[in-house]
């Protein structure tokens, strides 16, 4: 292995930055894929995979993808919720992998709500 230079630290760190961000639980945006039985049956896994692939492809390191259970609106699955730091969460319904990619790019990255797929802003409060 060649001698380390101070700048190499950044490079090494960069390689696993996304993993570390995930682990620290802090990110600019969070995409929650609803994976209840209803969601999975309606194709939520494909939606999630599309989002994950897009993140990988674009080398995005400050968006976290996570899953959650049924959002209660089973007839409109697959659904995702997008949360941006300091903004109300937005729920999207009736998704396909393509729609999900668009939401990732325009809302999670671009900050602009994709109104045509959006159900409503806001999220329920739990304990």
């Amino acid at each position: 292995m060649p001698k380390m230079k101070p700048g190499d630290l950044e490079r090494i760190g960069e390689r696993i930055k996304r993993t570390m961000l995930l682990r620290e639980g802090e990110s600019r945006a969070k995409v929650i894929v609803h994976m209840g039985t209803c969601g999975i049956a309606a194709g939520a896994r494909g939606v999630m995979k599309a989002v994950m692939d897009e993140i990988e492809e674009r080398d995005i390191d400050d968006v976290v993808v996570t899953i959650s259970s049924c959002a209660g609106l089973c007839s409109r699955e697959p659904m995702i919720t997008v949360e941006l730091q300091g903004e109300p969460a937005v729920k999207y319904v009736d998704l396909t992998p393509e729609k999900a990619k668009k939401i990732l790019v325009e809302h999670a990255l671009g900050g602009k709500i994709v109104t045509e797929y959006a159900l409503a802003a806001g999220s329920e409060r739990s304990i």
Binding site: P6, L9, I12, G13, E14, R15, I16
Partner: peptide
């Protein structure tokens, strides 16, 4: 060690 480095490890030594 990469995970230590990703959390600012050995940065202080470099500095």
């Amino acid at each position: 060690i990469e995970e230590y480095i990703a959390r600012d490890g050995y940065k202080a030594l470099a500095k």
